[in-house]
Design a protein around this nucleic acid. Structure first.
Length: 474
RNA sequence: CGGGGUGUAGCGCAGCCCGGUUAGCGCGCUUCGUUCGGGACGAAGAGGUCGGAGGUUCAAAUCCUCUCACCCCGACCA
């Protein structure tokens, strides 16, 4: 048992922070609300980037980069957009030793700067579609922050696409939320519910927003990715028109979509335990660590020699040998465990004699001896099994903590305990607001796979055509 | 912006209520020795503007006033 990780049933928030800090994922920053991402945390982010980038490219997207500073007037061009983001913007008013003529907003999101540029890039239907993604940092001055989940500055990717028709933009918007779902489940091992946000919860400036919602170990929801159909809103705001096949000028349709370093928070809260971090193998900066065991210098040479021999044709990014001699093996076990390394291999004189090693998996703690011969392929298989096992455990938790609920009294009494509730809702803003105010929970989304089902709104009793997903959320 | 809490060595803390030698403890760090298959042990060391300013007092980490910073909880959000 690792020392000092708070039991999550006592105080989940503190447990989470402990895992982040002791897992060497992040540190507090000198600037309030920002965070320092440590190598172990950034390594996970690099793997998220690498793998997501491949999925983006497979779906026809390319990367570009736009400026971090946005003229304040740009932000004001789309009415809903500015209303939604103005309160949380950081604004640069001085630079070069004097006041700027026009203040510059540090991007909270890049729709405006990008659409001001797309205006120059789009004339003809032949210029469409534009399928661009950018990896960037953004800044939102939120009232309250929490490491990874909501920091003042955060890293993300934002896709910004331009299309000739509504249908094509819609297809893109839907496609990308499916990409996110796939990524969350295959890489983060984090099952999600994909669906549509309510009018109140949608992105400021969008026609509608699709999202993926994950369930953390305390039963609360975490919005983990969003994809917005922006319609012609930004094209109109920035006067972006193209001439179609019929020689007519039309406004361009848009989508935007993004996921952020919040995914790392989701990963931590999905899989970690009281011994620390558990990183899914596909995202682990270090999948396998060797802990050599020796007493004498001769044994040290023997064990390290065998480890070197064993791994001579292995990818150096796949493993590391912890040959620090100021620490005992027990210390090293704990050290790598709290950092979430998926597989630990113990190799000592006894093992060398038997031509085997002791393999310990992080997810179950299970130990087993394995022959040195053919080890690499067995480790690959075990990593896949760990990945699958983490997903299965999280999926099981999601399923067993999701239930239909038809009585408001029942909902009100139990929503605070965590879990997802499938409830009927008439679609009225007033009912959604009432639900939020009375229960401090929200409608997370209208799931894509919610079947049509006659029911009565849990608040007002009016007819509802399908169930929506409601829960407390981060 | 409300509610709660914390500022004392690199980290984590005690001491404060009830002022009094040289401000302590654990971890970490340095040196030496013994250890090494689940967070080793012994010995010797290094390391401090007690968040800041003012006040009370013979005397302040401790009491008073002001102030700053950060953390946690809520409203807001990816």
């Amino acid at each position: 048992m690792a020392k000092g990780i708070t039991k999550r049933d006592r105080d989940y928030a503190q447990w989470y922070i402990d895992v982040v800090l002791k897992g060497d994922m992040a540190d507090y920053s000198p600037v309030k609300g920002c965070m320092v991402i440590k190598p172990n945390g950034y390594g996970v982010w690099e793997n998220i980037q690498r793998n997501l980038d491949r999925l983006f490219k497979e779906t026809g997207h390319v990367n570009a980069y736009f400026p971090m500073f946005i003229p304040e007037s740009f932000l004001k061009k789309e009415a809903e957009h500015v209303e939604g983001f103005a309160p949380e913007c950081a604004v640069v008013t001085h630079a070069g030793g004097k006041a700027l003529e026009e203040p510059l907003v540090v991007r909270p999101t890049s729709e405006t700067i990008i659409w001001s540029t797309y205006k120059n890039w789009i004339n003809s239907y032949r210029d469409l579609p534009i399928l661009i993604n950018q990896w960037a940092n953004v800044c939102r001055w939120e009232m309250r922050t929490r490491l990874f989940l909501r920091t003042t500055e955060f890293l993300w990717q934002e896709g910004h696409t331009a299309h000739a028709t509504f249908e094509e933009a819609e297809e893109e918007t839907f496609k990308m939320v499916q990409v996110y779902k796939r990524f969350a489940e295959e890489y983060l091992a984090m099952p999600v519910i994909a669906g549509k946000k309510t009018e109140q919860e949608k992105f400021a400036g969008a026609l509608h927003t699709y999202c993926i919602e994950a369930m953390m170990q305390d039963g609360k929801a975490l919005q983990s990715g969003t994809s917005h159909h922006l319609g012609q809103n930004f094209a109109k705001a920035f006067d972006v028109k193209f001439q179609d096949q019929n020689k007519e000028l039309q406004y361009v349709y848009a989508s935007s979509w993004g996921v952020s370093t919040r995914l790392i928070g989701g990963m931590i809260m999905s899989h970690s335990d009281d011994n620390g971090l558990v990183i899914p193998p596909k995202l682990a900066p270090l999948p396998v660590v060797f802990v050599p065991i020796w007493r004498s210098d001769e044994e040290r040479d023997l064990v390290l020699g065998r480890a070197r021999e064993l791994t001579q044709d292995w990818d150096p990014l796949f493993y590391s040998v912890d040959d620090r001699d100021q620490y005992k093996p027990g210390y090293k076990f704990a050290h790598w465990e709290v950092r979430g390394v998926p597989i630990r291999i113990e190799i000592g004189p006894r093992d060398c004699q038997n031509n085997e090693v002791v393999v310990v998996r992080r997810d179950t703690g299970e130990k087993q001896a394995m022959p040195m011969e053919g080890l690499r392929s067995k480790l690959e298989a075990m990593l896949e099994d760990i990945q699958a096992n983490l997903f299965a455990a999280a999926k099981n938790r999601l399923d067993t903590n999701t239930r239909a609920c038809d009585e408001f009294a029942d909902y009100e009494a139990h929503v605070g305990e965590g879990g997802f509730f499938r409830i009927h809702w008439c679609g009225a803003d007033a009912c959604e607001t009432e639900l939020q105010e009375k229960t401090r929970s929200t409608i997370r989304c209208i799931p894509f796979d919610a079947p049509e089902e006659e029911g009565a709104c849990i608040i007002c009793g009016k007819p509802s055509a399908r169930r929506v997903l409601a829960s407390q959320a981060y």
